[in-house]
Design a protein around this nucleic acid. Sequence first.
DNA 1: ACCCTACAATTGTCTAACAAGTACACTTGT
DNA 2: ACAAGTGTACTTGTTAGACAATTGTAGGGT
Lengths: 221, 221
Amino acid sequence: MSQRVSALSIIDAIAGDLRRRIYAGDLVQGTPLTEAELAASYDVARPTAKAAIERLVADSLLERGAHKTARVKTLGAESVRDIYFARAFLESEVVRRLAKTASVPDAARSANTEIEARLSQPATAIIDPDMDFHTALVDAMGNQRTSAMYRSLLGEVRLCMTRVQSLELLDSAQIASEHATILERIAAGDPEGAAGALDGHLAHARELLAAELERNAGQRS
Amino acid sequence: MSQRVSALSIIDAIAGDLRRRIYAGDLVQGTPLTEAELAASYDVARPTAKAAIERLVADSLLERGAHKTARVKTLGAESVRDIYFARAFLESEVVRRLAKTASVPDAARSANTEIEARLSQPATAIIDPDMDFHTALVDAMGNQRTSAMYRSLLGEVRLCMTRVQSLELLDSAQIASEHATILERIAAGDPEGAAGALDGHLAHARELLAAELERNAGQRS
DNA sequence: ACCCTACAATTGTCTAACAAGTACACTTGT
DNA sequence: ACAAGTGTACTTGTTAGACAATTGTAGGGT
């Protein structure tokens, strides 16, 4: 048994481990993952590996066509823009509504405190609290299905954030500061100000990452 | 072979047929679907039936816990409100943005024309064009992932609409008229008017259906 | 009447295998 | 030498049968 994971459901454990390795950059984009290979490496049956792959495909972390080998998702500038526009669409309306009742989610506040506490650590250390911050905003809506929709986006969002942070495209302190502004506008009961701050925050990351990807694509071709 | 479906992927075909039967009311809420039973009825292996079930669970048309038999989703008043609030949240922002550029999607217009053409038919006949209408609005945003998020809601939305229409809770002519108002407000470049009309449209259906479900729940207990 | 145990049913996972489709290299013809 | 067609190896799709683990239920004991 080459690798080992602890779990209730074997499929969950393998899917979770693959997810972790993709987020960690262990598996770079375009890496092929054949069912037999995975099955051998985790010492499970092929149907089990297959199910884990299908779960990650549903999360958009892997992509594959019929009868083709699954590969780790390759994010192009186009996809990044699509992802960030979808986020902005959803999140800006969320903060607008939160600002209308001037209700700042505690979870969002504490997530940003956590970011500030990690400013001296590597840039990748703030990815988790950053995701927590935005998730907390959406969850504060109190609508299960809205949270579920947002969660379906999170896998790809995380891929984007991993690249942004590992390329050091953004200063962590600036991220924390922009978050603070958003919370402050919500607390002030300023819907348009909060939505604008959030749009700017996302647009900032979006264009830096998209430009970077377009540059790389140019180099490669 | 008791039942037969034509398809490229057997799993897709079975999942699609089950979906159809659930929408048609052939499988009422709470109906248990065991893997072995399904496998026998479609004359396929159990893993194939299992995969089809998992697909519908991902669509929220079935629900099941670990080691428990999958059942056709039971919609309570609480879920209906959650679904319709999520719709309103997403769609109201969509029409607000469409109204800002006064751009009325052709597909939405023709979908509503189709509803008007079916007013003399049974109430269930307008379900398809009604879904098309709302989908057309969201697709007009031109954002793939926003459309994908909305699509993840559609399975449950359809369950709701099937109940609304089969219980004859709403007049088809009124639905068409409310749709027309939404399009008219978009064309007029009136964001708040369009969003308000859409909110009212959804709130109307939401409260009628939720009240009906609460009445039934009361009777049953 | 209530609790506990044992059994039946169902799901989770595995091994083994064959069919079908894809991709790439190789051969053949020009 | 180059282009096109063929063939083979690899991978996925699906099946069959089996066993372990868990859940729900029915029956027996107190």
